[in-house]
Structure formats: C-alpha cells, structure tokens
C-alpha cells in the first residue's frame, strides 16, 4: 500500500498495539487531537484512553513516568511534541533510561520508544527544527534511530517496540509527508544497528541519514554520480562495519547530516574511519552539516541547512582529488 511516513508510523503503532496490550502511548495532544502531526490519529478510538494517554504538559515527567511504566512491565511509547522540547526530559534519559539496566546488572530494564519529530526545513518557529541525535548518541545505553523513508520508519519502529532497550526514535518532520512509498500492511522489522546501502558505486562513499538522504539522492541521480550511498538508519549503535566497508571500497568519504557540524555524528564517523581505515583513503574525509550554531528562525533556514549545491560541491572536491 502507498503510504507516507505519517501513515506508516501510525500503522506500525497500530499493529504493535494489537499485538501487545502492554504497548501504551502517552504524550501531549496525542489522543483526541491525534498529535500535532496526526501520527497517532485514530488510535484513541481504536484502543481507548488507558492506552493512548493525553498527558499534562511536562516533558520530564512524560519520559519519567514512561520509565516507571517500563519498570512496571509496560512498553510505553512516549511522544515528545518536538525534539526541541525533549531537553526537559534529557536528565531522565541520561540519568535513568540509559542506566537502569547497568544499575541493576540487567535485573531491570527500560523498554520504551521515545518518538519525536526532529530536524527542520519546514519553516517552523524556533525550537521546532532541532536535530539533537548527537546529544542522545553520546549516551551509551540509548539506541538512536532515524528513518529516511516510510518503509524504514515502519520497520524500524516495529523493531524498536520488539527490543528491550530505550530507543530514541527521531522522525524527520520534513519527510513526514514528502513522498509516499509502497509499504506492506503486515508486520515486518527493519534491523536496528544495520545501515542500508541504498545505492552502490565506486567513485566515492556518501554516508548520511534522515532529512539529508533525499538531498544526497537527488544530487547523485541528477549528476549520475557513481557513488555508494549509505543510509545509517540507526545512529547509535553505529554500523561501523558498513561504514568501514564503503570507506575502504571507494577511498573517498563524504558525510552529510543536517545537525550542527561540530562535535556531531559526522565527527564520530570520520574518527572511526581515520582510526581503522586511514590507509585506504585516497582523499581527506569531508563532513557536511548545518553551521555550528543553533537552528535559526525560519527566514534564515535556507542559509543554514545543507542543500544540494553544498553536497554537489563537496562531491566535486572529492572526485577531483
């Protein structure tokens, strides 16, 4: 069935709720309103207010109570309305969700999936366009997932709900309704921790994820570039094997993400390649990210977020070196 990402995530939630009555959704405006992006539309009527819980407006406690629910045997799926507001729950994630398993030597665990719309490109108000994946990926114990298409979104979310770890599930706002894709109506999983080589080529490797996947694909298709495109899908744990494999194969690596450049996911990937595949490189690694300051007001976003031209120029530089 043709689905956009909103529909495929809604479908994944519905299937998981049908499968397991311990799956409980909670968040601001997710019930009657169906969430501000309508991702949870229809689920209140289908499953009732005990399982689709509209919460008071307090992000720390949306995460904190979800931790308690998970400890109590439920499988909560908290929604934080925008990733920019999730910092209020950051302490709960770092101090408890990531630590409970270690703290109790696996006597207790926190199986939950924190869903939140992330990244920009849709002219929103301040704090509604942030890309915080590096913040969460820095915390061992959390899984950080970011799909780039409806098929992966559904399969990754189902896999996340079948996993006994806390998962941060970042949903790129810009991709929610950007395109439709054939998505099976049945349950299926996309593995966590496995990157997806969406196009194979020999001249260079482009490592990316989330909102930058369509940008990279457009450039490569328009210019008919002979490139590996690796969509990480899971940011932490990183699929290091796939990263090193493509780096060794082409010897030229471009890393593209929307998040701020400095101290970001690109730095981690570049460092791992430098440590383990340095001598296979034919050119210095190039990283592309947004500029190293917080996301601006929407009027400036096109000057801030990487675009096709920026990617194209980096490709030229690598190909000519």
């Amino acid at each position: 069935m043709q689905m956009n990402m909103v529909a495929s995530i809604n479908n994944a939630l519905k299937l998981c709720m049908q499968e397991n009555k311990d799956v409980v959704l909670l968040g601001e405006d997710i019930g009657r309103d169906g969430g501000v992006f309508r991702v949870t539309d229809g689920l209140l009527d289908a499953f009732g207010s005990d399982r689709v819980v509209d919460t008071p407006l307090a992000e720390s406690s949306i995460i904190g109570t979800s931790i308690g629910m998970a400890l109590g045997g439920l499988r909560p799926v908290p929604e934080i309305q925008f990733a920019g507001f999730m910092l209020l729950g950051f302490a709960q994630l770092l101090n408890h969700a990531a630590r409970y398993r270690a703290r109790t030597r696996s006597g207790m665990s926190v199986p939950m999936v924190v869903r939140t719309p992330a990244s920009g490109g849709v002219r929103t108000l301040e704090h509604h366009s942030d890309s915080p994946e590096a913040l969460y990926s820095h915390i061992g114990g959390l899984v950080v997932v970011e799909p780039s298409n409806p098929y992966d979104a559904k399969g990754l979310l189902i896999k996340a709900l079948h996993t006994n770890d806390p998962v941060i599930f970042l949903e790129p706002t810009k991709l929610y309704r950007l395109f439709k894709q054939e998505v099976p109506e049945d349950m299926y999983e996309v593995p966590i921790g496995k990157a997806n080589l969406i196009q194979e080529g020999n001249d260079l490797s482009i490592i990316t994820y989330g909102t930058m996947v369509p940008v990279v694909k457009n450039v490569v298709q328009k210019r008919n570039i002979n490139a590996d495109i690796l969509d990480l899908r899971t940011i932490n744990p990183l699929d290091e094997k796939a990263v090193l494999e493509t780096a060794r194969k082409t010897g030229k690596v471009l890393i593209v993400h929307e998040a701020e450049l400095s101290f970001g996911v690109g730095a981690e990937i570049a460092a791992r390649i430098a440590e383990k595949a340095m001598y296979d490189l034919k050119a210095p690694i190039i990283r592309i990210g947004s500029h190293s300051f917080p996301y601006p007001f929407p009027g400036y976003e096109n000057y801030y977020v990487p675009n096709e031209l920026k990617v194209s120029k980096a490709i030229d530089k690598l190909l000519s070196s």
């Binding site: 406690s61 109570t65 308690g68 629910m69 109590g72 439920l74």
Partner: peptide, 11 residues
C-alpha cells in the same frame, strides 16, 4: 517521583 507515578500507572 515520575518513575513511581509511571510504576503506579502500570499497577
């Protein structure tokens, strides 16, 4: 405290 509340919700 939020953990306790979530745990109570689960009960």
């Amino acid at each position: 405290v939020p953990h306790a509340v979530g745990l109570a919700y689960a009960q």
